[in-house]
Amino acid sequence: MVVADDFYFSGLNKPGNTSNAVGSNVTTVNVNNLPGLNTLGISAVRVDYKPNGLNPPHTHPRATEILVVLEGTLFVGFVTSNPGNKLFTKYLNPGDVFVFPEGLIHFQLNVGKTNAIAFAGLSSQNPGVITIAKAVFGSEPTIDPNVLAMAFQVEKNMIDSLLQAQSD
């Protein structure tokens, strides 16, 4: 039994809590909290950033993202896939739009002195999100530090330090 509320979400007008380690907050509207999106192939987010706040490198395995800046100045970018791994970046101001292609690692950093707000549309009812640092350094169980040291070409003690920081 479908009702009007299945197609309604309230709250994107409210700032998210940016009092966290990265200084950003993502408010998600997808099929999990707006059932009317089922089979429509779209979702949305609001991202709030405090000054120097970061939406850390992440990927959406099932969606392209189009980001629109409402307030503030963001430094954004994405990296192409192997073998090129080319970085594309841009500084965005209110009214600017940037696209992050499906599955590519991307980020946003507030480089302004005030809070920033952006809205994004995604081309999936459930785009998924994989935050790179959390996935690599926060997995359960932990990826063997020797594997990570070899992958990142650093000493194992550096990996041990990163793993410890992630668990704190």
Score class of each variant (00 low, 15 high):
N115W: 11
L109N: 06
N17V: 04
H58E: 06
P83L: 11
V129G: 06
H106N: 07
P101G: 05
A63W: 12
S19F: 10
T27I: 11
A116V: 13
N93C: 08
I130D: 04
K14C: 04
V129C: 11
D5A: 14
P101N: 08
G72A: 00
F75K: 15
L67W: 04
L70C: 10
S124G: 12
N20I: 11
V47T: 13
V68C: 04
N32D: 12
N126F: 15
V26A: 05
L67D: 01
K86C: 05
N30S: 14
N32A: 15
F98C: 02
V99H: 00
V29A: 02
F88Q: 08
P101R: 06
V31F: 12
P61I: 03
G53V: 09
D96Y: 14
T89Q: 14
G53D: 00
L87M: 12
L87T: 12
L109M: 10
R62H: 13
D5I: 02
S81I: 10
A44G: 06
F88W: 04
G11M: 01
I117R: 11
Y91M: 09
L34G: 03
H106A: 03
V22F: 15
Q108M: 13
V76M: 03
N52T: 12
N85E: 01
Y91F: 15
H58L: 05
K86H: 11
A120K: 03
K90A: 12
V129F: 09
T59D: 00
T80Q: 03
N115R: 10
G23W: 10
V69C: 08
G103V: 13
T64H: 10
F9A: 05
Y91D: 08
G23Q: 01
K90Q: 13
N115E: 07
T18D: 02
A118S: 15
V111Q: 05
D96L: 08
F75D: 09
A120S: 12
G128R: 06
G36L: 10
N85K: 10
V129N: 04
L34V: 11
Y8H: 09
R62Q: 11
V69K: 03
S19T: 11
T114H: 14
S81V: 10
L40C: 00
V76R: 00
T80Y: 09
T89F: 06
N126C: 02
T64F: 14
N55Q: 03
F119A: 01
N13M: 08
K90G: 12
L40H: 15
